[in-house]
Computed example of a mutant assay.
Amino acid sequence: MQSKIDGTTLPVLSIRLEPGEKLFAETGELSWKTPNVMLRTTTSGAGASGFLGVMSRALAGGGIFMTEFSAEGGPGMVSFAAKIPGHIVEHTVDGGGSYMIHRHGYIAGTDGVRLELGFQRRLGAGIFGGDGFRLQRVSGYGRFWTTLGGEIVSYDLAPGEQLDVHPGHVGMFEERVNFDITMLPGIRNKLFGGDGFFMARLTGPGRIWLQTLTMPNLAHALAPYLGSEAVTDVAEAGGIGAAASLIGRIFE
């Protein structure tokens, strides 16, 4: 299985499949393919087994169903285009570690990669982390691809080293990194600072990937170019749906 990422601001992931190879992707991610690549909608993809496994993946943002891609009669190609400005990155899991990804970050993975809900180790992170609570946990064996918004800034945290990050900018991190929520200091900062009440505190050791573009920030930047009624309508969609609706209305 060979992969190629083309483009810059709105990249495209193209994967060459040989007969017998399988690729599992989120439903709705397909952009184009060769005719000999077959699709099969299934609930058992990405390592899910049984009802609880499927629900765990769905709660993490992966959905109840996955799409299985395979090539018949010769090599084939399937492509996935980014839905927002950002980057697509390839990763590998070998059974010795796992990753936590923001809930819209996972695109696709090879057979043997497991996708499920990533539970927070601390109650505060779950209650106040916003989208940080709905993390996707990726483990198993194989290769997988993620999409992060805007530019990607990565850090290798030493043991005990900490970084405070707005929860929406946390794109991905190794599971061994501790994720907790801390409050901003000072009443004036909380009420008038415009940065919210809470920050995600990431503690090493481990590698983290931060994204510079968040969906709320993108929607907020586009809002002045739309009428108030349009902003109200698309705000109810939330996340990527809101941003896509805003962009669509601009070009109507």
Rank of each mutant, 00 (worst) to 15 (best):
I15R: 06
M77C: 13
G86T: 02
G76A: 11
L157D: 03
M77F: 07
E151K: 06
G132H: 03
R137Q: 07
T9F: 14
R16N: 06
V165R: 01
Y106R: 07
T147R: 03
T203W: 09
E72W: 14
E161A: 07
A230Y: 10
A48Y: 11
P11R: 05
G142H: 12
A108Y: 04
K33S: 10
S44L: 11
M215D: 00
A125S: 03
G160N: 08
L52Q: 06
N217F: 01
H166L: 09
E252Q: 14
A223F: 09
F128V: 06
K4W: 11
L210R: 00
V37T: 07
A221G: 07
R114G: 02
E26I: 05
R114V: 14
D111Q: 14
G126C: 01
D6N: 10
T8H: 14
S245C: 14
T232G: 04
D94L: 10
S98Q: 07
Y225R: 13
L226V: 06
L123E: 03
G118Y: 01
G206C: 07
R207V: 15
V170N: 02
V231L: 08
G45A: 12
A219M: 11
T214A: 07
G28Q: 08
R249D: 14
P159A: 12
T67I: 12
G97R: 12
G112K: 11
S154D: 06
L148T: 04
I152Q: 05
L163Q: 01
D195I: 04
R57E: 03
A125H: 04
A60H: 02
F251R: 13
S44N: 14
T146H: 03
L135F: 00
I84L: 12
